[in-house]
Design a protein around this nucleic acid. Sequence first.
DNA 1: GTCTATATGTTGATAGAC
DNA 2: GTCTATCAACATATAGAC
Lengths: 235, 235
Amino acid sequence: MTLSPVEESEFGVSGCLDTKQRLLDAAVKIFSEKGFHATSMRAITQEAQTSLSAANYHFGTKEELLRLALQQRVKLFNDRRLTLLQKSKKEAGEATLSIEQVFEAYLQPFFERRTEWVFQGVSPAGLAIRLYLDMPEFVARVRKEAFTVINHRFVTELEEALPGFSSCVLEEALQLGTGVAIHAAIDVFEMNLNASDEKKRAGSRLENTVRFVAAGVCAVNGGPFIGPSDLGENS
Amino acid sequence: MTLSPVEESEFGVSGCLDTKQRLLDAAVKIFSEKGFHATSMRAITQEAQTSLSAANYHFGTKEELLRLALQQRVKLFNDRRLTLLQKSKKEAGEATLSIEQVFEAYLQPFFERRTEWVFQGVSPAGLAIRLYLDMPEFVARVRKEAFTVINHRFVTELEEALPGFSSCVLEEALQLGTGVAIHAAIDVFEMNLNASDEKKRAGSRLENTVRFVAAGVCAVNGGPFIGPSDLGENS
DNA sequence: GTCTATATGTTGATAGAC
DNA sequence: GTCTATCAACATATAGAC
């Protein structure tokens, strides 16, 4: 997995690639691969072919380096969302957009690997996702083990409830449902960092999530829409 | 935030609470609060009122301690799922369960704080969620900052597409959509640890996710179901 | 601006007495 | 089984030469 440490960057502020930008690129690369905690400043400076002190001169702390690196990449990501949104609005003319169109603009960049984004194998979405799921490899493995049996049990159950669906689709549905529930339950466990103003009805959180997931599963494979469409193909 | 270090444990293998179990309880508590990386063995042993060597004697490594602690808690979580499933099947009699019923059994424990589970303020779901979103506080803050503007923009857009919906509901919908997309995109970025057998059609991943989320949002607040129901109240 | 060298603290894990 | 004492490796951060 050897690769030339510096080739070219689409973020270069000046003509040539200075140390600061090399550090930002290296930070994006290694943060994306290993997450925040598991990444050491030494690894980043080594990747950028510079020294530990240079990094501290430019950024002060590891946290500030992450902040700037993330900002640089996320800007590309979010600009892309706005571009997609504008494109849809232009095509729609006077009509208002459907929620499908809005969500498509919002979610599509997660699934794209635009060549002008990818730098040393890393795309902006890769970093964002990595920071969301910032667990060491071992944790992911143990967690997966702990839920293998129960998930298999529930896939079997879903197969009974939805006879026409393939098991791998239902596996995926269960994974998506877990993702939804986790995000829905975050502030139930007071792990949210924003002021939970609690204007949302807490009591109906479970019911809403169940409805959300069940409707989503049916929409994906039980609806009129089977297989790939032409959505997003003109990107 | 002082609390008596040892009160009682529902996991006691023997009559009294030995060092090994105290370590497991302390591990669950601190792993749940801080995640894996940010938790030191010293913090766990201090909480358990024992020494670092005792932990290493019983578990060998920090990873093994996490594995065993997680297994112990997850068993309660998954047993609860099975109980709920059995209850629904019993009530259904001969009829097969709906997917709503299946997902309800699967997801409900995420939102429960059963008194017999909670030990020193930690429930099994709390640990599972923490391990999913195992980021340091700083990372969560920076990530949130980076997406504040764009999220506000898309909430505005959704308000236009769904005039009757409240903005806080749409904020929540966007968060859930992000959760879905992240989980759906994980193996797009080859961050999945299981052998991605790629029998799932990769090309339609985005379209399925968009449909999933859009249908989910409508089902939660556009469907016949508004506000709290009696689902799960008899738990 | 960038480097070498170092300060200071923490980590997970181990050795050996009891 | 549990402890004290210690290890080597790693972390972030800084001082000062150039």
